[in-house]
Simulated assay, not measured.
Amino acid sequence: MYKIIACDLDETLLSDDRSISKENIEAIQKAKELGVKFVPATGRGYNTVDGTLKELGLYDLENEYVISYNGGAISENKGSKLLYFEGITFEKASELYKRGLNYDVCIHVYTKDMVYAYKFVQEEIDYLAGRMEVKEIFDDHIDFLKGQEIVKVLYMNTDYDYLKKIEDDLKDITGDLDVSYSSNRYIEFNHQGVNKGQGLKKLTDILGVDIKETIAVGDNFNDLSMIKVAGLGVGVQNTVEDMKKECDVITKATNNENAVAEVINKYILGTN
């Protein structure tokens, strides 16, 4: 019996219009009634998922959890109690920010409480609307963040090949970082060893659950670490093609067609 479902949000649980289907909500509730924990695992901050938790009936509950910042934080839903956090140094964030100025990218800098964006283009404004609060910045440095805990930095460009070239360019400074891709638009830089897979491992350690008793569901490369470490690694039908071969299972449904309900119905409820 699986005890934990770790599930990506954007392009996995959430439909393209950012909604959660009735079918997904009902399946998650049925799994919860059986004692299965449904754990959102997102690259976003834990303070951005309150709306999702409310829709799922998990908001402000004890013994329910969120993995956020690509595994950089684990929090209990009750009072958003932070159980684990690991970010990057200000010096590393500053270096990534300054190098990013040389590319055609929107740069995001994540602190615990805010996301700052440079070159906040309209396409990105539209994409993030309803997902998270963002503060636009215009300086060629982030000295104003000295002394604050910084979680990660990411670059946005919807050209994946261009982002791959950036990854190659930055190899001289990313040896101590965990580099991943998400939402078909981001290259993300976390502290080395910080990823969703390690976040799921840490949560199972906290709860005393065998990692084999977990399901991980996702769609993009920042989900791959948890898909590979989980007892059952599931990619939804709209998963990036190059990643599908790494998954144990690919759903018939996309994120717009109740993919999460398909997983729960088959592997938790045994109804299809």
Rank of each mutant, 00 (worst) to 15 (best):
M1C: 01
K3P: 01
E11F: 10
T12H: 04
S15L: 12
D16H: 05
I20F: 05
S21K: 04
E26H: 00
A27T: 05
Q29S: 05
K30P: 07
A31Y: 03
P40A: 05
A41F: 01
G45N: 07
Y46C: 08
G51K: 14
K54L: 14
L56R: 15
G57W: 05
D60T: 11
E76C: 10
S80N: 15
S80E: 15
S80K: 15
L82Y: 03
G87M: 02
F90I: 07
A93C: 04
Y97F: 15
D104L: 01
D104M: 02
V105D: 07
I107W: 08
I107Q: 08
Y110K: 01
D113K: 08
A117Y: 03
Y118F: 14
D126V: 07
D126W: 03
A129I: 10
G130Q: 11
M132D: 12
K135S: 13
F138L: 12
D139G: 06
D143I: 04
D143F: 09
Q148P: 00
V153P: 09
K165H: 10
I166N: 09
K171G: 02
D178L: 00
V179W: 06
V179N: 10
S180E: 08
N184V: 10
Y186K: 08
N190R: 08
Q192N: 13
Q192M: 13
G193Y: 01
N195R: 04
K196C: 10
G199A: 01
K202M: 12
I206A: 11
L207K: 11
I211V: 02
K212I: 06
I215V: 06
A216I: 05
G218W: 09
N222Q: 01
L224A: 09
V229L: 12
G233I: 00
G233H: 03
N238Y: 01
V240R: 13
D242G: 14
K245C: 10
T251Y: 00
K252M: 05
A261K: 12
N265S: 13
I268L: 10
N272V: 14
N272Y: 13
